[in-house]
Design a binder for these strands. Structure first.
Lengths: 380, 380
DNA sequence: CCCCAAACTGCAAAGGTTTGCAGCAGAAGA
DNA sequence: TCTTCTGCTGCAAACCTTTGCAGTTTGGGG
């Protein structure tokens, strides 16, 4: 029977070997086996190698759940996103994963289908299996988030909620830049394609776009809320055409490309008839025809920052469980929560053009407010 | 202090309430609290409501990790994919998630960045925190997979490995259809853009495309292996042009669109100069210009089937742990592993056209083998 | 009035691991 | 030779649940 991983207890039944099996096989106490893995320097090299050999032979792997039960550390991070199919998320996910990996953590991703109820449920499900959860673009209410944060360490992304660490991208600034860009092109009749209800980002965009339009003496019609998908955008083609606007800012790239396609099948040309701006600068935006003018959001940086915040916040607090003193959060510490705000940038491509009454496109269209725009606008 | 969730032990320290706290607060034994949640019918309605009230008040949530430790069931499923940014995966993930949710399971997704080592590590990390793992398009060796399957229940997707439940999509058939389609259009000089090393799908495609080409008396140049990304495809534009082929089958849609873009910037027109066929029929393929002819793979069905297989396989075996007898796998049962094969379909769009020496495109180009093609080819 | 079943509830072991403490042997120092 | 220290190992409690079994109470039937 050598060569096969079988416990000594019951012949023929294959069951994962436990620390006890290894202890028995190597003739030491289980605590020594434990130390062989979690504190190797405490055990005699000779013993250690014997134990390791037995473990290897039996195919032993420490049970992370059991370990977590007592150490209070799972070395896992949960990441909850609204829609994994939205190209906005994968770069963020990947960045978070690689950052986590470099700190010896694993990331488990879950998708909520834009459903607030699913969000809550997933937080509960993840709560005791991870050391913290990254809540990305949550759709639930602030109060619910706050309540959940008592159950598990939380870092929110693209949202500001009191007393919780957060990393947000300055989409307000982005929306402002976008509107200013459109104004500079001569548009005075704008529409905003709203995103999903409950989205903080959506509110920010709306607010910023609103003031920017008002400042520029332009009209801004808000259409929404809508599902933040391609279909959601396509469905708005007809309303947009009817509204008579000459330029549109969409909640995200997905809606923007959906809209463009919808307009296209209606015979409306972009950007000749209507200019369209997206938000996110996903890989998509370089692939559409015309290429999409959009607001670039630093998704990778956001993912990394969120992981960092969670881990540092986490290192200070032994979380739940554990034998030592000082378990749990001290209420005072909860206030030391930082918020990171990341800058956005307007990327001008081909889906925006001069508005009515402008014969030719001024090649320096975006230079309307030269100094402040310079650093955060890019032309491709 | 009413209204706040605080344990009785240490004042001011917020720590998740345990079953013990609830028991103390409601004046019953912890076992009664346990039953209130996991077997409500066994406890007096009056007691039950009192316990529930206390639990509510304390913000108690059963610790799933501890529960799993003894029941041997986590009600979680792991799903490991090669690249979350590849649009092939999200539909599969979503389908798996919704199927799992309907069975009261949660899905945790992890991304390996096409790295076999990361795959292995993730399986280990997930092993004790989930009831099983869906290994999607794995890049590791069969032997390693087999070895890992001793640690945790595994279902592989897009791969066949001995004695393991698997769901595969018949890309071989798809590749054959694609090649036959190209042959019917008059192409005799074909290239295949290979995917990543270690991909079962890649081998299948290669094999099937090879025989189909040979049967049709055409030449098939295999270029690869390559990273299965847009960049991977774009990088092959130059080699493809130099090779002088008139039609290309790509490992997936991503590579196909990359190639088309690359060719475009080289001044090579698709499909006039070169025809391109993708595989997967991702959302992308309808958005490119020209729209992509591609092989549709039933990703949603695959996700659902995989979850079903895992769960049924799993229901029969109480997994590890648990008090009752019969824990672990019986070696014999391992053989009752089904393999599900899902059909694919060729979707003809605009990226394929007549080959050289064909003046006009025969509108019934794909009707070369009318009967067998009819059911698995679609024209859009 | 007694017995028995039914309906609850408590007891304690179990699941796999970590870790403070104590014990032990051997070496180094006095 | 006697301490003291160091390096290693074992002991047992603890983490939070679930669950078979046994004990208690209550109500009904005979």
């Amino acid at each position: 029977m050598s060569g096969t991983a079988v416990t000594a207890t019951t012949e023929g039944v294959r069951v994962p070997a436990t620390i006890r099996d290894v202890a028995r096989a190597s003739g030491v106490h289980i605590s020594t086996v434990s130390r062989t893995f979690s504190a190797p320097h405490l055990v005699n090299p000779e013993t250690r190698s014997r134990v390791l050999a037995c473990a290897e032979h039996l195919g032993y792997r420490p049970n992370r759940a059991a370990r977590a039960l007592i150490t209070g550390r799972t070395h896992n991070i949960g990441l909850i996103v609204a829609d994994i199919a939205n190209p906005f998320f994968p770069p963020l996910i990947k960045a978070a994963e690689s950052q986590a990996r470099s700190r010896d953590y694993h990331v488990f991703v879950a998708d909520t289908n834009e459903d607030p109820a699913a969000e809550e449920e997933l937080v509960h499900a993840l709560a005791k299996q991870v050391d913290g959860v990254l809540l990305c673009s949550p759709r639930m209410s602030n109060s619910l988030i706050e309540q959940l944060s008592r159950e598990v360490a939380l870092v929110v992304i693209n949202r500001q909620v009191a007393n919780l660490p957060a990393v947000v991208m300055d989409v307000g600034q982005g929306a402002r830049l976008a509107v200013e860009h459109l104004l500079a092109l001569g548009h005075r009749n704008l529409a905003l394609l709203g995103g999903p209800r409950g989205s903080w980002t959506n509110r920010e965009i709306r607010r910023a776009a609103g003031t920017a339009a008002r400042t520029g003496d332009a009209a801004l019609a808000v259409l929404g809320p809508n599902p933040p998908t391609e279909d959601g955008g396509a469905a708005l083609a007809e309303p947009v055409r009817r509204s008579g606007v000459t330029a549109v800012l969409a909640y995200n790239d997905l809606m923007a490309v959906g809209l463009i396609e919808g307009l296209d099948s209606l015979g409306v040309r972009v950007p000749q008839d209507i200019s369209v701006v997206g938000i996110d600068d996903t890989a998509l935006s370089r692939r559409t025809r015309p290429k999409l003018t959009t607001v670039a959001t630093p998704t990778g940086a956001a993912g990394r920052a969120a992981v960092d915040m969670l881990l540092q916040h986490d290192a200070a607090h032994p979380a739940r469980g554990g034998r030592g003193a000082g378990r749990g959060f001290n209420a005072d510490d909860r206030r030391t929560t930082a918020q990171v705000m990341l800058q956005t940038e307007l990327v001008i491509r081909d889906s925006t053009g001069p508005g009515p009454h402008h014969g030719a496109a001024p090649s320096t269209a975006a230079a309307a407010a030269p100094d402040m725009v310079a650093s955060s606008t890019r032309r491709e």
